[in-house]
Deep mutational scan, measured.
Amino acid sequence: EVTIKANLIFANGSTQTAEFKGTFEKATSEAYAYADTLKKDNGEYTVDVADKGYTLNIKFAG
């Protein structure tokens, strides 16, 4: 089991951190699915992958 950390960075400057656990593939998939649910209210997003994929910096356009 691994932990994927998602740093969520919103257009208004606020930030939030979420963690997803499971296999690497499952946790990564859940992180992207979570970002997709936030897209409606926060706009499109870009992802900067860090720490060999264990950290995702997800920035929303607003």
Rank of each mutant, 00 (worst) to 15 (best):
L8Q: 01
A27P: 01
G62D: 13
A61K: 13
A6I: 10
T3V: 12
G62N: 09
Y34K: 04
I4N: 00
K21G: 06
T23H: 10
G43K: 03
D41T: 12
A33C: 03
G43W: 06
I58F: 11
N7L: 06
F20R: 01
E1L: 12
K39L: 11
S29K: 13
E44Y: 08
A50N: 10
G43S: 04
A33W: 13
T55Q: 05
T28P: 02
K59V: 14
I9V: 15
A18P: 04
A35E: 00
A33Y: 13
T55F: 08
Y34L: 14
K21H: 06
Y54Q: 11
Y45E: 00
D41R: 14
Q16H: 11
F10H: 03
G22E: 04
G43R: 02
A31H: 02
A33F: 15
G13W: 06
D36K: 07
A35D: 00
V47W: 11
A35I: 14
E30A: 14
D36Y: 05
Q16E: 06
N57T: 07
N42E: 10
T3M: 10
A33P: 00
L38H: 07
T23L: 12
T17A: 08
S14M: 12
A11H: 11
L38Q: 05
Y45M: 04
S29P: 02
A61E: 15
A61S: 05
F24A: 07
G22D: 04
D48K: 11
G53Q: 04
L56N: 01
K26F: 14
A35Y: 02
T37V: 13
K59N: 06
E30P: 00
E19Q: 11
K40R: 06
K21Q: 13
T55D: 03
N42V: 05
D48V: 14
V47G: 02
F24M: 08
Y54P: 01
E30I: 07
D48G: 10
Y34A: 08
V47I: 05
V2F: 06
T17V: 10
E25W: 06
T37I: 08
T37P: 02
V49M: 08
F24I: 13
S29G: 11
S14I: 10
A6E: 02
D51A: 07
T23D: 15
L8C: 03
K59I: 13
N7F: 14
V47C: 03
E44P: 12
G13E: 08
A6R: 00
A50F: 10
G62A: 13
F60R: 00
L38Y: 14
K52Y: 13
G13Q: 15
I4L: 06
Y32V: 07
Y34N: 03
S29Y: 15
G22M: 02
T3Q: 05
E25K: 10
L8N: 02
G22T: 02
K59M: 09
A31I: 14
V2I: 11
D48L: 07
L56Q: 01
E44N: 09
V49A: 11
T17L: 15
Y32L: 09
E1H: 08
T46S: 04
G22V: 00
N57Q: 12
N42Q: 15
F10W: 06
Y45C: 02
N57R: 10
Y45P: 02
D41I: 08
G62F: 11
G43V: 02
A31E: 00
D51G: 04
